[in-house]
Design a protein around this nucleic acid. Structure first.
Length: 764
DNA sequence: AGCACGCCGACT
DNA sequence: GTCGGCGTGCTC
């Protein structure tokens, strides 16, 4: 491992396609200062004579703001103007980013309506301290010694603002941004074999015995635990010269592969093709096979001397994938994981990746911006999973990771990005997206499918359903289990006919209409605000039995427990009870992680047509439900012939895509056009005024704005949603970024306004 | 007039 | 993040 403060000089590698082209250096640099919580635009600084030859795009520099040195990244150059400019003070080379990564950050900032400095921060080592200064030449009355690291606040307290500035100017203290230092751990090493352990000192003997086979020693913490000894016994051994204690840096969480690569042959050809051509690819296959296919991509990249980035939706999946890669990939390659639970290690992994010491980096969405010395391939596992998008307030970019992944492949010399899923998102699969396709691998096994037609029934659970559950759990021999997938926890927002299953939809958007009040059955569109009045009877079959769509977890659970006479477990995000029982009810996210003998979906219609979901999400859920069943999948529906349901239960993605893609185009969904969903929190008056006076006048050409509608599920009416729509993503992101700025300006006081921006949301 | 306090905008 | 400017409102 290279030292953090040393200039960035990796081991020699042949030229790779990620190399940034040499930039002509002008005497003025644009610098994006890394000040959190402030969306400062990049500022211009003069480059001092002695640094002109060294400064390049991506270089970390120290530049003054209000007289204090701040860390920034050079993001561009410009000609010298008339304005007197401050000078860049120093370089912080060990923290620099490759020039291409700055381009990627700029693209990502534009696409996500985030300030550039916030995105650059995500690409830099985590835990980077931007407030530490090193004391170089202390004045006689200072309390610090030369070389010590002191925080800015402490320096201010002692020296005062002016004193701090003067000391920095004079070079007595130097701004020293650095990633968190790796801890040292104590190791015990056996020294003198001749030492005779006193007969009663059994702990000391145990310690020596544990150490005897380890010439290079053992970490102290583990050793004490293994020998069931305390620190005192060890100290005695040290005093007698039998053992010495050494401090060594904690090991990097980079592991080595130990497989043969023999299980990867099946995917070799596809991997080669994607890497040879580069660009974005969809590789449709069962999720279980994706691991080996991604390993094949990684091996192919390694052969080309390149690194692979593998992105998974969840942290748990990262750890599983690392283990699988260790087993599958030929021995001697390095694999490392990167996610938000990694702690101090993460900065070390970041550096190892940046220096090219990691062959395969497996991480969550936060890893998409990690610099790589030799980028070759990006694998996005389980592509449609929405955990690939950061929710506001959580770590990572708040857009789906597929977007920066594609941008990265383009920017970094056409590296390959491969999206894995049996049912990729239609926005990628649409021919207009320009994403190439590798030959699909279809599931080689499919469960038996039972469809129960619920038209005309009032009961939530059919006798067919109950009989299937009984048959499964009463089966002799091996214990069998039933998983019941329910879509929602509380109340559904849409209205459907209890007789034929008709769902009220907005004539303009084709979205299910939201049920405003359950008694009067008044309907309106959450998307465009259209008010559709009250529903009296079903326009399809004339029935007056109208009910809100969807069954809730607790209702199904109680119904099953009652009818089957067994304990029924529950597994949802915030309630887990009796999960190892024979029958478990839960939400899809939880339930479809494991396998069941019988998977039951008592209300497929709410998955497919409910307000919370779209046909696309419903298709994936039913498909995944089938894949999670060892034996049979049973679903209840009032629209048994619906093509999405039929296609899902056959596992026929192509048929589903062929019927849904034209709808996407006519409705103007990505990739045909882009949406920005802006949620504004504030009084109706404030929101309306802001939208009309500040937002509407500045909308760029081709950006359409729909009127604010109350945010669904917000009963108090303090949250409003505005949709922006455009064929041009850039224009849309600009408008969205402006909203963020306006909201930041009007915060506080009676006119308080909070904004949240979702670019290209999955559901609207 | 003199001063504390909070808000706002500039800082390159 | 840090600063100074300015208006408000209070005290001397």
């Amino acid at each position: 491992m290279a030292n953090h403060t040393a200039p960035l000089r990796g081991p020699f590698r042949p030229p790779h396609r990620g190399a940034a082209p040499r930039q002509k250096v002008l005497p003025v640099a644009r610098v994006s200062l890394l000040i959190p919580s402030h969306a400062l635009p990049p500022f211009s600084y003069r480059i001092p004579e002695h640094l002109v030859s060294e400064v390049r795009i991506g270089m970390a520099v120290v530049a003054p703001l209000s007289g204090y040195g701040r860390l920034g990244i050079v993001v561009g150059f410009e000609e010298d103007g008339d304005r007197p400019l401050k000078e860049i003070r120093a370089l912080a080379e060990g923290l620099s980013l490759p020039g291409n990564l700055v381009k990627l950050c700029a693209w990502t900032a534009g696409a996500s309506a985030l300030p550039l400095n916030a995105v650059l921060r995500m690409a830099l080592p985590p835990g980077l301290s931007t407030s530490a200064l090193q004391v170089h030449d202390p004045a006689p009355d200072w309390p610090w010694r030369a070389g010590s690291i002191v925080s800015r606040t402490q320096l201010r307290r002692v020296l005062g603002g002016e004193g701090l500035k003067a000391a920095e100017e004079a070079g007595r203290i130097v701004f020293a941004p650095a990633p968190p230092v790796r801890r040292n751990i104590e190791w015990a090493v056996a020294e003198d074999e001749a030492y005779e352990v006193p007969s009663r000192a059994s702990r000391q003997r145990a310690l020596l015995e544990a150490l005897v086979d380890h010439d290079s020693g053992l970490p102290v913490v583990g050793l004490l635990e293994a020998a069931n000894a305390g620190r005192d016994s060890l100290r005695r051994l040290v005093r007698r010269g039998a053992v010495r204690i050494e401090k060594r840096p904690e090991p990097l969480s980079v592991s080595y592969t130990r497989g043969s690569g023999s299980g990867l042959a099946e995917y070799e050809e596809g991997a080669k093709r994607a890497l040879a051509r580069g660009g974005a690819w969809i590789w449709r296959m069962p999720n279980a096979e994706g691991v080996a296919a991604a390993a094949a991509v990684a091996r192919c990249a390694v052969r080309r001397g390149e690194q692979t980035l593998v992105l998974t939706p969840e942290i748990g999946a990262v750890e599983r994938l690392v283990e699988e890669f260790e087993r599958l990939l030929p021995a001697g390659l390095t694999v490392a994981s990167y996610h938000s639970e990694l702690g101090r290690d993460r900065a070390a992994v970041h550096e190892a990746a940046r220096l090219g010491e990691v062959d395969v980096l497996v991480g969550t969405r936060v890893a998409v911006l990690v610099p790589l010395a030799r980028p070759g391939a990006i694998c996005v596992m389980d592509e449609p999973n929405e955990a690939h998008r950061a929710s506001p307030g959580y770590e990572g970019v708040p857009i789906h990771v597929r977007e920066p992944a594609i941008a990265r492949s383009r920017i970094e010399g056409d590296a390959a990005v491969v999206f894995f899923s049996p049912f990729p998102s239609l926005r990628l699969y649409a021919p207009e997206s320009g994403v190439l396709r590798l030959p699909a691998i279809e599931a080689d096994w499919w469960p038996a499918v039972s469809v129960v037609d619920m038209r005309g029934t009032g009961a939530a659970l059919s006798s067919t359903l109950l009989a299937a559950c009984r048959r499964t759990i009463q089966f002799g021999g091996r214990r069998r289990r039933v998983g019941v997938v329910v879509n929602r926890l509380g109340h559904a927002a849409s209205l459907s006919c209890a007789r034929c299953g008709f769902v009220w939809r907005c004539p303009a958007c084709a979205f299910p209409l939201a049920l405003r009040d359950t008694v009067g059955k008044s309907l309106s569109c959450n998307r465009c605000g259209t008010d559709e009045g009250s529903a009296r009877q079903c326009p399809n079959c004339g029935s007056g039995r109208l009910d809100r769509t969807g069954l809730a977890v607790d209702k199904v659970r109680a119904g099953l427990a009652d009818a089957l006479g067994v304990e029924v477990g529950v597994s949802t995000a915030d309630k887990r009870e009796g999960e190892d029982g024979s029958v478990v009810v839960g939400t899809a996210r939880r339930m479809l992680e494991e396998e069941w003998d019988l998977v039951v979906v008592p209300d497929a219609d709410s998955l497919l047509f409910g307000a919370a979901g779209t046909a696309e999400k419903g298709f994936r859920l039913l498909y995944a439900a089938a894949q999670a069943s060892r034996d049979r999948v049973l679903i209840q529906t009032r629209q048994p012939e619906h093509h999405v349901l039929q296609a899902a239960l056959r596992g026929d993605y192509e048929a589903f895509a062929a019927s849904e893609l034209p709808k996407r185009r006519s409705l103007g969904y990505p990739p045909h056009a882009h949406l920005a969903q802006i949620t504004l929190e504030g009084s109706k008056e404030t929101v309306r005024r802001t939208v009309e006076s500040r937002l509407r006048p500045i909308l760029g050409d081709g950006v359409e704005m729909l009127d604010p509608v109350p945010f669904p599920g917000d009963g108090v009416g303090t949250a409003w949603r505005v949709l922006l729509k455009s064929r041009k993503r850039g224009a849309l992101a600009e408008a969205a970024a402006l909203v963020a700025r306006i909201a930041a300006e009007t915060r506080g006081g009676g006119s308080g306004l909070k904004a949240r921006i979702d670019m290209d949301p999955e559901e609207v």
